[in-house]
Structure formats: C-alpha cells, structure tokens
C-alpha cells in the first residue's frame, strides 16, 4: 500500500527551563494513502509536534519524513498544494472577516474565487462569511479552518484535534466530513486523544505515547477479531460442561456463558452435537480505549498522561458486533 505520510526515526526535543525534553522520539510512522488514519495518543504525547514537523513548522532534531514520497520539509513546496491542515486551534487574522481570510489564502495558492463560496457553502458558513473572524464561535472558527483546508481540494488532510470545543452536532458534522473525505479516496490524518472518535471513523490507526510509536495498523487488527464470545443457550450449565470437555475455556456470565476462543463456529458445532442450540452468539472484543490503555501501560505511561481517558473507562471488554 502506498504511504501518504511516512517518517523514520523522527525526533524532536525542546528546551524547557534549561533542560532538554523529548517531544518525539524515534518515530516511525506510516499513514496509508486513502481513508481515515487516526493518530492517537494522550495529551503531550507528541501528536501535534509530529504534525508540525510534517508541515515544516518546526524542524526535527533528526530523522526523516515524507509526504506522498516527497521529503519534508525540504521538498514540501512540491507537495503543499496536495496538503490541507489544521494544527491545534484554528488561527486566522482576527480583524478580517471569514471571507477575507479565505480570499487571502485562496490567492496565495491561486485558487479560483468561486471555490471560496463553495467551501463556505460546504461548511455552512456562507451567511456569516462577512462577519469578523474575532466574533466567530469556536465551532465556526473550526469550520472556517476546514473550509480553508478544502480550498486546495487536497489529497491529504491533516486535522489536529478537530472536534475540540465543538458541540455534539458540530462534532458529528466534522466526523461525517472526515469520513466522507476518506470515502472519496482522500487521506485524512486525524489526531485525537478521544478514542471513541477515532474508533468510529478511522480505518487505520497509530498510537503514540511519550513521543514513541506504540502500535500501528488497521483498527480491526489492533482491537483483535474477537477472542471471546458471549453465548446464549438454553442449558448454560450443561453447555459449559460440554465446551470445557471440548477444551474451550468457559465461564458463567449471568444467564450467558463467556467462551474464550476466536472460532465462533466451533462453539456452535460443539453444542449442536449435544443437542444444545445457541440462540445468541456475540463476539466480545476490546475497544480501542482498552487497547490504548493496555499499550500505554505496558510502555510505562502512567494514568496521568492518559488524559482524555476517563478513569476506569474502557477497562472492561464491551460488546461489539451483532450475533
């Protein structure tokens, strides 16, 4: 699979109170072209620093990065027209209107003026386009930032915590936008510390903690295909006995059984052979939150750095998928 973004050994340190602090450490990141890629990590884990390095806003201490095969930041000008980005909060000229801000950016890249109205329409900002940016709500600012990224009709969109400060309707709108862009073949790199958000929209995901890559891959692969099943059967005690005899670890789970295996068909066949018929078979898989916490805990990250993860949340497996 072609990579839209890749990094090798990317490293960045900052000087803070006379000491060097590592923001990103030997980061090897691969974002496949097409689809939505979640870039997941607690606050302060190096997500924004990585994005800034990709966009040439800050210089890495060492390592290399590429966007669509072009080395960045040196060859960024060759590929910048294919990249739209929002880094952290939206930042525009506060004294200008939304339309004026977009017009300046459109003129920088030589985009036709008609595109400004299109992106304003697409982001539902057309009616407020001639209002001053300083008077915009955070949601409107966020939408203007998205409008700005769409000016180029880029192949790669980088959204850094795009739903911060938005109301539920705004969050949903942004998610739908990102998903729609991904479905249209665009590459969307979205950084977030909100696990549920990434899980809902991302095809692939990279998880970082303390500037290091902890895991990378398809969301489904990272979560696992389902190593346990919840089984509904008429005689659970008898069924548990049969399954254990078959070598499948089984325990009671209320009126159901919880069977540890990744082969649901084997459960059904084993029970049916003993005239025990399954009326419910639900694969149980860990959600991204649990995976994230497992990865960050094994990498030595304490709970305090896992900001955005509610205490205790996601520690239990949850149901996922239908019987």
């Amino acid at each position: 699979m072609d990579a839209a973004v890749s990094t090798v050994g990317l490293r960045k340190t900052y000087r803070h109170r006379g000491r060097r602090q590592v923001a990103v450490e030997r980061l090897d990141l691969t974002v496949p072209a097409g689809g939505v890629h979640g870039f997941l990590g607690p606050n302060g884990s190096g997500k924004t620093t990585t994005i800034r390095m990709l966009l040439g806003l800050i210089r890495p201490d060492s390592g290399q990065a590429w966007i669509f095969g072009q080395r960045v930041p040196d060859d960024l000008p060759a590929v910048i027209d294919r990249v739209g980005a929002i880094v952290e909060s939206p930042k525009f000229f506060p004294a200008f209107t939304g339309r004026q801000n977009l017009r300046l950016l459109a003129d920088v890249i030589g985009t036709q003026r008609v595109r400004i109205d299109e992106v304003l329409e697409a982001t539902h900002l057309r009616e407020r386009a001639d209002d001053g940016y300083a008077g915009y709500s955070l949601g409107m600012k966020q939408r203007l930032a998205i409008a700005a990224t769409l000016l180029k009709d880029p192949d790669l969109l980088i959204f850094d915590e795009p739903t911060n400060g938005l109301d539920p309707a705004g969050i949903r709108e942004i998610r739908d936008t990102m998903r729609a862009l991904g479905d249209r073949g665009k590459t969307v790199l979205v950084s977030s510390h909100i696990l549920a958000e990434v899980e809902q929209i991302a095809d692939t995901v990279s998880i970082i903690g303390r500037g290091e890559l902890l895991a990378e891959g398809r969301v489904a692969d990272l979560l696992g295909a389902g190593t346990q099943f919840r089984v509904g059967v008429a005689s659970p005690d008898r069924a548990a006995e049969v399954l254990r005899e078959r070598g499948l670890p089984t325990e009671a789970d209320g009126a159901f059984l919880r069977v540890t295996t990744d082969d649901g068909e084997l459960i059904c066949r084993t029970l049916a052979a003993h005239d025990l018929f399954v009326h419910q078979l639900t694969p149980l898989r860990p959600d991204l939150e649990a995976t994230f916490l497992r990865l960050t805990s094994t990498s030595g990250l304490d709970a305090g750095q896992s900001a955005g993860v509610p205490a205790g949340a996601g520690l239990d497996d949850t149901t996922g998928g239908a019987p």
Partner: peptide, 13 residues
C-alpha cells in the same frame, strides 16, 4: 458539510 465537498474551482496554480 459533506454534501459540498465538490472540487469545482479548486485548481491551485
């Protein structure tokens, strides 16, 4: 928002 993600006019030069 998704409905308007058209590319008309977006031709950076």
């Amino acid at each position: 928002m998704t409905a308007g993600l058209t590319t008309t006019g977006a031709s950076p030069t």
